[in-house]
Design a protein around this nucleic acid. Structure first.
Length: 905
RNA sequence: GGACGCUUAGCUCAGCUGGUUCAGAGCGCCGCCCUUACAAGGCGGAGGUCGAAGGUUCGAAUCCUUCAGCGUCCACCA
């Protein structure tokens, strides 16, 4: 065997193993009825993006879960893919065109969409490639795209079914209009930014009187579209005005004065100008009072011809200035006050959103929301952390219809067809449309120009990628999926809608075993939703390109290794809390990988040493001969670790589960077990016993690697391949360790804890007295009882090796050695004779400090026991335990005190 | 305006259903060590009245109330 380098170098191994796994199809899952499926669908990243720390966290978690379940024997399937990201992608391509001096209209729809596809082929796979560097074990053969043929089919099917069921309708509605993209945006696509603006107060004359109404607005230009003035019906001040008309300055339109509860009589003048075409609340008021809707803008935000001609064609913010100026000139401006309010901006281009009245397609959400809310409330889908359920509930109870049309070209074109007479229908293709509309094959027919909101394909993701609407074995087997791992920021965009879609459209689909799906239970798209942490920088700011505080994960992988990055983010990710990250934190993972590497190196070196020519066969079962305390202890710790790890990961406590492995491997296996195994390797036991000890250590290490593999796939595979002849095999498909209660043993752990305490006491004496590690010392021990004496006698070699002790003497009389440093462990006294070495003052203060510490604890105990109501009311076991503690502390303190006296004499 | 979350060592955070020397880990810091797996390491050590004030309880970092600071989401009043 060739020598392994002293330090682990991820660059030497990562790509090699990834290629090995992928080329051997180890990631691929197939329908296997003997196994239970475990499925995760990836939240499809945008084709415009590249890998961010957010993706790293999200996909590391998915990979950990998938690898873990795969090793546990599930048919684990992780389906990857990308999202076409309508607006984002179209913008990216338009930007590229701009450099050529072109606009999309110069190319025309067909050519432009072709360009976007070209762009997608070139750049769209960036993240997918980068995920491989991270070690993601996605089933690449199943990779999908939200605009590929299968998904198109699903989208059309869904649209037509909903249309036929009356769940989709077309309507005039106030939408959030982005004047840059010239498209409607859903409510979720609008960002509100607190902005300093003005509140302008105007007066409008009242018809046939000398009176005025006083109204205020933050958007003066919209007054050109005013069609009413409203007051609160309870407002005594204005009751007499209701029913009269105001006259709109600059325009001359009569504005009825109406009474509506929406108006807050305590705000401003208590009068509100009503602009139904340009304000969502005014729109609703307009509907209640059948007001005229005057749309004053065109699609780009310029004034249209429904306003007086001097304003036609002016840009909206220029118009604002002009209107204010004109009103002021005519004496209608009362005052201007500074006013802070939230302004909606496009989440892509940050253009100020214009509430805009236009024809759009909508999905009726109420009927879909009800069952989707219920399955979460009934626990058929569980959110982690749970508190997101409340957020979900609130949204679902106040759900609004979903505007699904977008006035762009890149996306699923709305499958609605119009005959020349204006009749329309939804259809899967033109042929079907003609039939439905009763048109001849040659008759003119036109498809809707708009495309669907990107989320209209994403919400079908968990079943469309499995072949729906066609009958598919995959669908029946892998859906419902098991775990969804995503950010809480898209709980409404995506998570809620997937639940609705799965419930609505899979209703009636058979299961893989042929049985009909039971109501609800089998209709959910997934059973657990894990909401990931938000990655922030060390100042707690969001990672963002503009701040430049987002490390490039590929650089981090290059510097620290993928395993280090993966382990570190898992280690830092508490459930439901943000993560403050900087790349140097990856030292945690890198150092850990190196630690494991060297533990493996140690075992392999001894393997060469002890077995001469290397036996490269598997060690199937743990060798049970020649067990000593350390062996039984590490086996107990191992099974504890397996049990605790499974429990923690099962609850999605990533940080806890990684900590369990860290502690087991580093602080149990390396710090103690490996050191104790050395006492046997270098001791005088027969070589065949040493071989058993070695093979046991190898077996345990093998299990540790398996445990760690989901978190650190590369280093574990590399070492695992070295441990035995594993040609053609892979650790990623080796069975995950299971818990064997037989090995979990409290007595063993207690005995070992005693040994460790004794060793720690000796180390403490050495450290505090500044005795060089190279200086041998002798130790005298007076044991509290025969059981402890037996342990000390049997495992003195442990103390000798780890305490660097040359000789141990057991004291039988009560005589105390002179000039010795001392300690007490559970009544067992330890003396280290230090003639000539000891610093008496230092030793005295060390003992005094220890006595004071114990004294403090004892006082606490005695205070408790002195409290009559504690003794009376606390459970018996608790009181009893306190009594035992009291006795034990007392003896320890007495012994230390005696030692102190001895030292001073 | 509404909902939720956070506040524990210099820094980043664990501490689940109140009770085992419950006040912990990693990093940083101090001291001693290149001991034949590992200096990306080993051993020892110093550091905190658990945000504030009340309350419940025999007992509170843990449960309740109020307050302060920070953060997230929702709504958006002209």
């Amino acid at each position: 065997m060739k020598e392994l380098p002293k330090a682990y170098n991820p660059r030497d191994v990562e790509d090699k193993w990834y290629q090995y796994w992928e080329s051997n199809n180890f990631f691929h899952a197939t329908v296997d009825k003997r196994k239970t499926p475990y499925t995760i669908v990836i939240p499809p990243p945008n084709i415009t993006g590249s890998l961010t720390m957010g993706h790293v966290l999200n996909n590391t978690i998915q990979d950990i879960l998938i690898r873990w379940r795969r090793m546990q024997g599930y048919e684990a399937c992780w389906i990857p893919g990308t999202d076409h990201a309508g607006i984002a992608t179209q913008s990216a391509v338009e930007k590229a065109l701009e450099k050529e001096g072109l606009k999309r209209h110069d190319l025309g729809r067909e050519k432009f969409v072709e360009r976007v596809w070209q762009w997608k082929e070139q750049y769209g796979g960036t993240i997918i490639k980068q995920l491989r560097k991270l070690g993601a074990s996605c089933d690449w053969q199943r990779e999908r795209f939200t605009l590929d043929e299968g998904l198109s089919e699903a989208v059309k099917e869904v649209f037509v079914r909903m249309f036929e069921k009356g769940l989709i309708y077309r309507g005039k509605y106030i939408v959030n209009w982005c004047t840059f993209h010239q498209t409607a945006l859903s409510d979720d696509e609008v960002d509100y930014v607190e902005t300093n603006g003005n509140l302008w107060h105007f007066k409008y004359p009242i018809e046939g009187t000398d009176e005025f109404v006083i109204v205020a607005t933050t958007r003066p230009e919209t007054m050109l579209g005013d069609t009413a003035v409203a007051v609160n019906p309870r407002d005594e001040r204005y009751r007499h005005l209701v029913g009269k008309n105001a006259i709109l300055p600059l325009v001359g339109r009569k504005l009825p004065i109406i009474a509506d509860d929406y108006v807050d009589e305590t705000f401003g003048s208590g009068m509100v100008k009503v602009t139904p075409a340009h304000d969502p609340n005014d729109f609703l008021m307009g509907q209640r009072h059948h007001l005229e809707q005057v749309n004053i803008f065109d699609e780009k935000g310029y004034l249209n011809t429904s306003v007086p001609k001097q304003y036609v064609g002016i840009e909206r913010f220029a118009c604002r200035k002009q209107v204010v100026k004109d009103l002021e000139a005519q004496g209608y401006l009362l005052k201007v006050e500074p006013h802070t309010h939230n302004i909606g901006r496009c989440y892509r281009c940050h253009t100020i959103i214009e509430p805009y009245l236009s024809d759009q397609w909508f999905v009726r959400m109420k009927p879909l929301a009800e069952p989707a809310l219920r399955v979460v409330q009934e626990g058929k889908i569980r959110f982690h952390p749970e508190r997101w359920e409340k957020v979900y509930e609130h949204w679902m109870n106040n759900i609004r219809d979903w505007c699904i049309s977008r006035q762009i070209w890149w996306g699923h074109r709305i499958p609605v067809y119009y005959a020349s007479d204006g009749q329309l229908t939804a259809a899967r293709d033109e042929h079907e449309a003609r039939t439905k509309l009763g048109l001849d094959p040659g008759a003119p027919i036109r498809q809707d120009d708009d495309v669907l909101d990107t989320w209209f394909s994403s919400w079908l993701w968990p079943f469309s990628i499995l072949g729906w609407p066609r009958d598919s074995k995959d669908l029946r087997y892998f859906n419902p999926t098991d775990t969804l791992v995503t950010g809480p920021d898209i709980i409404f965009f995506w998570v809620a809608r997937m639940i609705m879609a799965n419930m609505e459209f899979l209703n009636g689909e058979p299961r893989f075993d042929g049985k009909p799906r039971t109501k609800d239970e089998e209709l959910v798209p997934f059973r657990d939703v894990y909401f990931t942490s938000m990655i922030r920088d060390l100042q707690g700011r969001k990672m963002s390109k503009s701040l430049g505080n987002s490390p490039d994960p590929l650089d981090v992988i290059e510097e620290y290794g993928a395993d280090a990055l993966r382990f570190t983010v898992a280690f830092l990710s508490p459930l439901g809390q943000d993560v403050l990250f900087s790349s140097d934190k990856c030292e945690i993972g890198r150092n850990f990988a190196n630690k494991i590497w060297n533990a493996g190196r140690f075992l392999l070196m001894n393997k060469t040493e002890l077995e001469g020519s290397v036996h490269d066969e598997e060690i199937e079962h743990v060798p049970e001969e020649h067990l000593d305390l350390a062996d039984r202890w590490i086996l107990s710790r191992l099974h504890h670790a397996v049990r605790d790890f499974n429990a923690a990961l099962g609850e999605f406590h990533l940080n806890e589960s990684s900590k369990i492995l860290y502690d087991f491997i580093w602080h149990n296996f390396c710090d103690w077990y490996v050191e104790l195994v050395k006492t046997r390797f270098y001791g005088d036991e027969p070589v065949d016993v040493k071989r058993v000890v070695l093979r046991r250590a190898l077996w345990i290490f093998d299990r540790a690697l398996r445990l760690l593999h989901p978190m650190m796939p590369f280093v574990t595979e590399e070492l695992w391949q070295h441990l035995a002849d594993r040609k053609g095999k892979t650790i990623m498909r080796a069975p995950f360790p299971t818990v064997d209660q037989r090995w979990i043993d409290q007595k063993t752990e207690d005995d070992m804890a005693f040994v460790q305490d004794v060793i720690n006491a000796v180390r403490n004496i050495r450290g505090e007295n500044n005795i060089s590690p190279s200086k041998d010392i002798t130790v005298q021990v007076r044991c509290a009882d025969t059981a402890r004496a037996a342990i000390v006698n049997t495992y003195g070699s442990y103390l000798k090796k780890l305490g660097r002790v040359s000789a141990i003497e057991t004291l039988t009389t009560s005589v105390k050695p002179k000039l010795a440093s001392s300690a007490v462990v559970n009544g067992t006294e330890i003396f280290v004779p230090l003639e000539g070495l000891i610093d008496l003052d230092a030793e005295r203060s060390r003992l005094e400090k220890e006595i004071a510490r114990l004294q403090q604890v004892l006082e606490g105990i005695e205070r408790k026991l002195g409290n009559a109501s504690f003794v009376e009311r606390a459970p018996k076991e608790v009181v009893e335990r306190e009594r035992e503690k009291q006795a034990s502390f007392k003896t320890n303190i007495e012994k230390l005190k005696a030692n102190l006296v001895q030292l001073s004499s």
